[in-house]
């Protein structure tokens, strides 16, 4: 992302410099090139590439998932998050703490009970709305064990700024222990 932005900035600076250096010379570029090429064809090519990339990203986020995927319910309310982990017996439910195994795909079933919230862990994935009466799927994967901060990303009332949670990504041993109901 940064490399692409740098390359584009340098290209624009270079073209601007070129325009200053060659000031005064007669341009011979035809209107067809300006309007048809740079005004129509180039934006279409760029936008098509971006749409293709966005569609692929979207498929990866909502993909039904491969076998071995962990499924967790994430429910937002004013002003806490409840996570049902559907593992082992008793399905440990936690408040404001989402436990998952690191290095494995996890599918979150995101919903809300009162107003619209938005589930957002900036280091793991983009935002996904939590909507009453509707389940949205979001696929995430934490590469490394550790703690990832999350927050509600849709204004949901006076407690919105404190509508926080954290994601605890376990290593294999820690995940096994969590499933057995042992909490560190």
């Amino acid at each position: 992302m940064l490399a692409g932005a740098t390359a584009l900035s340098l290209l624009v600076f270079g073209l601007l410099l070129l325009a200053f250096l060659r000031r005064g010379r007669e341009g011979r570029t035809s209107p067809t090139v300006w309007i048809g090429g740079l005004g129509v064809a180039m934006p279409i090519a760029v936008l098509l590439a971006l749409v293709g990339y966005a569609l692929m990203l979207g498929e990866r986020i909502v993909a039904p998932g491969v076998s071995g995927t962990v499924v967790i319910d994430a429910t937002g309310r004013q002003w806490s998050w409840e996570f049902s982990h559907r593992v082992g017996d008793g399905t440990p439910a936690t408040h404001n703490e989402l436990h998952l195994p690191a290095g494995r795909p996890v599918v979150l079933r995101i919903a809300a009970v009162d107003v619209i919230h938005s589930f957002w862990v900036p280091r793991l994935a983009g935002k996904m709305d939590a909507i009453p009466g509707h389940v949205n799927l979001l696929r995430i994967e934490a590469a490394q064990p550790g703690i990832y901060e999350g927050q509600c990303a849709e204004f949901c009332g006076s407690g919105h700024s404190g509508h926080l949670f954290r994601v605890i990504a376990h290593d294999e041993a820690g995940w096994v222990a969590f499933q057995r109901g042992e909490r560190q």
Partner: peptide, 14 residues
């Protein structure tokens, strides 16, 4: 053609 193509390319309900 382009704006309709996702009906063939992407998953419909999620």
């Amino acid at each position: 053609l382009i704006t309709g193509s996702p009906v063939a390319l992407t998953s419909a309900c999620a």
